[in-house]
Design a protein around this nucleic acid. Structure first.
Lengths: 113, 113
DNA sequence: TCCGCTACCATGCGACACAAGGTACCTGTC
DNA sequence: GACAGGTACCTTGTGTCGCATGGTAGCGGA
């Protein structure tokens, strides 16, 4: 479908906070996040997107990391949301709802003509 | 507000179709669109964004243009949605709703922890 | 005459998602 | 014990798109 390109643009700005939401209360590692997002409609992504994104979140102090051995395979870097990450997520959630309401209103308007 | 940056990313991909929605049934010119979007929360934008965007829509055949004299000031280039533009808008609206549902679900999940 | 408004457009930049490729470790098979 | 394949990490280069900036031109008021 050509419409996949649309989602690529829509993901911008939201993916970051979807990851943050997935990390609330539950530490996860990069590969796991890719698989979790892959199951959600419109949020399919790859490692090439996730790792730079996680590095950014870490630089901004929104997540913390720790290495853990795996029972099978290489060690994993687990990501945990900080308190600051939780606040950022809450702020975004509010912004997101405002934004959705605005877009919905305009699209609705357009449908009527 | 620093949060303005968030909206910059959220606008990606949606702005294009918000413009298309505003053009449904009613021809408008560029400057008018900037003012119309400026009144909507989270969609404030400038000419530097709108004109390249309109040029893109025109290249893709989603809008058509015509010049009209203005009673006061320089002539205006009016943009009208084509049938193809209407179809693209309908397709996007469906994608947008799916995407919103996905993001809402993940954000909700994160809030519970 | 000169400032400011309306209205158009072009150029260059930065942020971000993604494709592609690279490293390293473990497991199973021949 | 060599080697294919899976897991998991990360880096580099590319393309898109919103936006800042700036430039042109006509009109009206001080």
């Amino acid at each position: 479908m050509v419409a996949e390109k649309v989602f690529t643009q829509l993901r911008r700005g939201t993916l970051e906070f979807c990851v943050l939401a997935l990390l609330q209360g539950e530490p996860r590692y990069g590969f796991e996040l890719v698989k979790a997002l892959g199951e959600v409609d419109g949020l399919v992504t790859t490692e090439g997107t996730i790792y730079p994104l996680l590095a950014r979140l870490r630089r901004e102090g929104l997540v913390e990391t720790s290495w853990r051995e795996s029972e099978s395979g290489p060690p994993r870097r687990y990501y945990t949301s900080t308190a600051e990450g939780g606040q950022a997520l809450a702020a975004f959630t509010a912004d997101w709802q405002r934004f959705c309401a605005s877009v919905d209103a305009i699209l609705e308007n357009g449908r009527r003509g």
